[in-house]
Design a protein around this nucleic acid. Structure first.
Lengths: 221, 221
DNA sequence: ACCTGAACACCGTTCAAGT
DNA sequence: ACCTGAACACCGTTCAAGT
C-alpha cells in the first residue's frame, strides 16, 4: 500500500487484466451486456479506445475473461457429499449464483459452452458419467442443462406486451394500444428463484427417467 | 400475372411486407442473423437504407415479422390425436421444423417469448393445463420448453476449441495451439436431430415426474 | 403514399505512431 | 512495453425532402 507512488482512489497509471474485467462487469451490471462495447469500456477506464486491445485479442476475448471471472467462485463438490443428483444440484446452484450476482452475464456464456471455465463443464460431465450416462449421452445431458442454465436469462426481456385476445391482421398502422401487461407478471416469473428450481428439478427428474429407460434397453439383443 | 406491367424476375416496383420478410429470411439463411441489418436488408432489396422503415417501426419490428413467418406453418393438433404428451410432442416438432428450415431464426425467437405467434404459445400452455399443471406452473413448464427449443441453437457456435487437458494459467501470450477439436464432434451433436429428441424426451419425462409429485402433495393438510 | 439523402451518434478493428 | 490517434467500414435511426 505505502510501497509505490500510486494514487489510491484515482485510476491506476497502468491497466491490468483485472481492472479491465472489473470495468466490463460494472458496465454489464449497470446497463446490461448490450451496452458493453470496446469503446464504452475505454470510457469507463478513462483510456483511449484502443488501450484494452493490448490485453485482449478482440471483443470475444474480453467476453471470455468476463465469463471466466463470473464463474470463478464455483467449487467442485467432493464425491463424498452425496449421490450424483445432489452433486449436480450443488454445481448448478453455484453457477446460478454466479449468474445472478453478475446480471447479464448468462448471455455471454450461452454461446461459449464454458470456453473459459471448462473445469465446471468437466465436473458436470463427470457427475453425469457417474450417474450412468455413456458416450454421446453425457454430452447431450450436459448440453440440456447448459441450455437451460444460460438460456433462460434471455427469455422474456420484453415487458410491453399487447393484450392476448387480439391476434394479428390489419394492414399495419400503429397499434399503440396500452391495454398492456396481463403478461407482465408472466415475464417476472422467469427470473425468479422458484422458476429456476422448477426447471432444474424437472431436468433432473427427466434425466433420472432417461437412466431408468437406458437400463432397460441396454441389454444386448 | 399478365395483369400489370411488373417485370417478372427483376425486383418489383413497390415494396411489400412479404418481400421484406423474404429478403430478411434470405440473409438469415445465407449469412446468419448477425449479418441481418436494416442496411444489408436494403441492399438485398435494392432500395435505399430507409425504405423498409415505412413498413416496420424499427429493427425489432422486422424481427417480429420474420419470427412470425418462420412459425406460420405450425398447426394446432386436435384434442382427439392423443394424450397431452403426444400433442406436446407434435407441437414442438413443428416448431423445431420451422427453426430448422430457417436456420438462425431461433436466436430471434428466444428473447421474444412468441410475441408474434402467440397462438403456438397458447396451444402449448393449454396442453400443459390439460396435463394437470396449474397456475404459475403452467408458465414455468412452458418457459422450460421454450428455453430449450430456442436456446439450444445458440449453444456452441464456436469450433476453434483448445485441447481439454491444458487449463488456464500463464500471463497471456498467444496460445494458438492447433491441437484442436476433440471438441468438434461435440459441437456438431448439438444441432442434430438426436440431440433434439433426447432433450425433448427428457423434458417430457421430467414434466411427467412433476405431475406425479404434484398429485401426491396436492392434498390439503 | 411511398421512398430518398444527408446527417448524427454510435460500433469493432487495423495500422502507424508516440512515449 | 504500453498506450494513443486517425482512419475504415460498418451500424440504427431521425428528420426533412422529394415524387
Amino acid at each position: 500500500m505505502a510501497q509505490s507512488a500510486r494514487q489510491p482512489n484515482a485510476k491506476a497509471e497502468r491497466l491490468s487484466e483485472d481492472q479491465i474485467i472489473d470495468a466490463a462487469l460494472a458496465i454489464i451490471r449497470e446497463s446490461g451486456v448490450e451496452s458493453l462495447s470496446m469503446r464504452s469500456l475505454s470510457r469507463q477506464l478513462g483510456v483511449s479506445p484502443m488501450a484494452a486491445y493490448y490485453y485482449v485479442r478482440d471483443k470475444q476475448g474480453l467476453l471470455d475473461l468476463v465469463a471466466k471471472r463470473a464463474l470463478s467462485a464455483v467449487q467442485i463438490p467432493d464425491k463424498s457429499v452425496g449421490p450424483w443428483y445432489v452433486r449436480l444440484q450443488l454445481l448448478v446452484d453455484q453457477v446460478e449464483a454466479g449468474l445472478r450476482h453478475n446480471q447479464g452475464i448468462a448471455e455471454v456464456l450461452l454461446g461459449r459452452i464454458m470456453f473459459s471455465q471448462r473445469s465446471v463443464m468437466n465436473a458436470i460431465m463427470e457427475v453425469l458419467e457417474e450417474a450412468g450416462f455413456e458416450g454421446p449421452n453425457v454430452v447431450k445431458a450436459y448440453a440440456l442443462i447448459h441450455t437451460y442454465l444460460f438460456g433462460r436469462y434471455r427469455v422474456a426481456i420484453e415487458h410491453h406486451d399487447l393484450a392476448p385476445g387480439q391476434a394479428e391482421e390489419g394492414e399495419g398502422a400503429e397499434d399503440h394500444d396500452d391495454t398492456v401487461s396481463r403478461m407482465a407478471p408472466f415475464t417476472m416469473n422467469l427470473v425468479g428463484r422458484d422458476y429456476y428450481h422448477f426447471g432444474i428439478e424437472t431436468l433432473i427428474y427427466g434425466l433420472r427417467s432417461q437412466l431408468r429407460r437406458q437400463d432397460l434397453t441396454d441389454v444386448p439383443d
